[in-house]
Write a protein that binds this DNA or RNA. Structure first.
Lengths: 108, 108
DNA sequence: TTAATGCATTACTGCACGGTAATCGAATAA
DNA sequence: TTATTCGATTACCGTGCAGTAATGCATTAA
C-alpha cells in the first residue's frame, strides 16, 4: 500500500550518492558506469546497485553497448513528484478558498 | 556536505508514515498530536518523533496551547524541492539547446 | 492536592540499506 | 586461445532509523 509512484521516487532520491548520480546524468547526459564511478566517491559495485535502483524507479535508462553500459536520465519520471507537490499546494489553496468563503459569509 | 535544503526534504518525505502525516496536515489543516495519532496507524511516541523531524525540516509548525500542541503544514518549505526539480529539468533543457545548436551548425 | 490527560523523551529492538571485497559472465584485446 | 576489461552479483558488515513500551513533565480536571 506504500508503493504509489511518488513513494518510490522519494525513497530513491533520498540517498545523496544516488541523487548525485542522477544529477550528474541530468547535467552531463549519458555516461558509462565506469565514468560514473570515477568521481562518485564509492566503489563500482555501489554505483551499480544505485543505478539498478534508479532504473527500477524509472529515473534512468540503460543502453548496453558491447561490454559497457550507458546510462541516461529519464526526466519524465519526475512527473509524479511534481504532481504530488502540486496536490499538496492544491489542498492548501482549497482550504484557503473555503476560509475565504466562510469569511465572506460571516461578513454578510 | 550532504545537508542542502532539498537533501533534508527528500530524506524527511521518504518515510510513508511521515509523508502521510504531512499530507493530512495539508488536506485538513491544523491538528493536535492526539488527532493525528488517531488514524496514523502507529503509536503516539512514533507520531511525536515524526512530527519532530517534520518540524526540523521546516515542513510543519507547532502551536502550543495548554497541554496540547497543534501542528500545521508549512507549504513554503517545499520550495527547495520544486527548485531542485526545475534545476534538473533546466539541465535537460540546456543540453537539448546545445544539441540544437550543434545540429544547426552542422546543417550549414 | 490529587488524579488524569496530552505530548515528549528515553531505552531498547529489529530491520532495511549503504558500503566493501570477492567473484562471475560477457565482451574485447592480445 | 588467453588475458583483460566492464559491469553485475553475491556475501557480508555496520549502522541508521522506524517502531514500541515505559517513563517523565506539564497542564487541566476533580
Amino acid at each position: 500500500m506504500t508503493s504509489q509512484p511518488h513513494d518510490i521516487l522519494f525513497r530513491t532520491l533520498a540517498d545523496p550518492t544516488r541523487r548525485a548520480l542522477f544529477e550528474r546524468l541530468c547535467r552531463e547526459g549519458e555516461q558509462t558506469v565506469g565514468a560514473l564511478t570515477a568521481g562518485a566517491g564509492v566503489s563500482q559495485p555501489a554505483v551499480s546497485k544505485h543505478l539498478a535502483l534508479l532504473k527500477q524507479a524509472g529515473l534512468v535508462r540503460d543502453r548496453p553497448d558491447g561490454r559497457q553500459i550507458h546510462y541516461s536520465a529519464q526526466l519524465g519520471a519526475l512527473a509524479p513528484l511534481v504532481d504530488w507537490t502540486s496536490r499538496m499546494a492544491g489542498f492548501w489553496q482549497h482550504r484557503f478558498d473555503r476560509l475565504e468563503d466562510l469569511l465572506k459569509r460571516m461578513d454578510q
